[in-house]
């Protein structure tokens, strides 16, 4: 990798990191480096300063916070796949993290980095959108909490203000009756999703009481498939009913056409894959 030159700092606290960021508007945060390093390598980005969060131990790991899990921004994808709290209360996150790229990337890439990069083809943005997670952001003025809908602004763009860092993700614990499935459609194991569907369904008395669907790569930001959620709520927990509800999956989306797939094919895939993901989440 032959990037343009930059300065580097490795602060020991969030406050110091925020201060370093705030002092240089061309500074970039680096955590696992799995998105930033390719940009530097290709000289698509010319930061003057890299603020390495790697020395901030408080950003690591998963903590039980009562009704929710507090996941530090530096938690790696690999750790998401192995953490017992995640497995018990937010299994969708572990399942989806296990599909990201390859083992080398999963051992380096972090949840905070993946979300802040805001690639709509990334898996975790749609997953935390479906999970109704809250993003905790710290800046010069202190901390604030942001919903996924307010965090993801556009393709590779978040509403993080200059000097702000995503410090943790608060994921509500899934209660009894919830099932989940992440259906990822990618041409090779290491490739990004053409379309991904993060599905959650709460079953009650043979019916789906509640469903939440997040779509990967169906627009410039992760998308909630509201029409499917509405159609699934109260429906019989059957493959046929889930497939029927999923016919609305592409409503309100604006999928891209690119090298990998045209928009109409993505719309079709969203419907088929949502049906499958919902059925698995509903246990049918």
């Amino acid at each position: 990798m032959i990037p343009a030159s930059f300065d580097y700092t490795r602060p020991g606290s969030v406050e110091a990191a925020v201060a370093a960021l705030a002092a240089d508007e061309e500074a970039k945060v680096i955590a696992g480096g799995q998105s930033l390093l390719p940009l530097l390598r290709l000289r698509f980005a010319y930061p003057t300063l890299l603020v390495d969060l790697g020395g901030i131990s408080e950003l690591r790991g998963v903590r039980d916070a009562g009704d929710a899990l507090e996941i530090g921004a530096l938690t790696t994808h690999y750790e998401l796949t192995r953490d017992p709290l995640i497995a018990a209360h937010a299994g969708l996150l572990a399942q989806a993290a296990g599909t990201i790229a390859d083992p080398a990337v999963r051992h380096r890439g972090t949840i905070g980095g993946a979300l802040s990069h805001a690639d709509p083809a990334g898996d975790l943005p749609a997953v935390i959108t479906a999970l109704d997670a809250v993003l905790v952001v710290t800046g010069p003025g202190g901390s604030r909490e942001v919903s996924p809908g307010d965090f993801f602004a556009d393709y590779l763009t978040t509403t993080l203000a200059p000097g702000e860092i995503l410090t943790s993700v608060r994921v509500p614990k899934l209660g009894d009756g919830w099932g989940y499935h992440y259906e990822k459609f990618h041409p090779t194991a290491q490739a990004w999703a053409i379309v991904g569907v993060a599905a959650l369904a709460r079953r009650s008395n043979g019916h789906v009481a509640e469903a939440r669907i997040g779509l990967t790569n169906m627009g410039s930001t992760p998308v909630r498939a509201g029409a499917v959620e509405a159609a699934a709520a109260g429906a019989e927990a059957s493959a046929t009913a889930m497939r029927a509800a999923a016919q609305h999956a592409d409503q309100g989306t604006s999928p891209p056409s690119d090298l990998r797939a045209a928009a109409d094919y993505r719309r079709h895939l969203a419907r088929v894959l949502t049906g499958r993901a919902l059925a698995k989440a509903a246990g049918v």
Partner: peptide
């Protein structure tokens, strides 16, 4: 397809 992100080569997993 200038990078391996766009030029897809299979791995053992595929």
């Amino acid at each position: 397809t200038a990078s391996l992100a766009d030029y897809l080569i299979p791995s053992a997993a595929d």
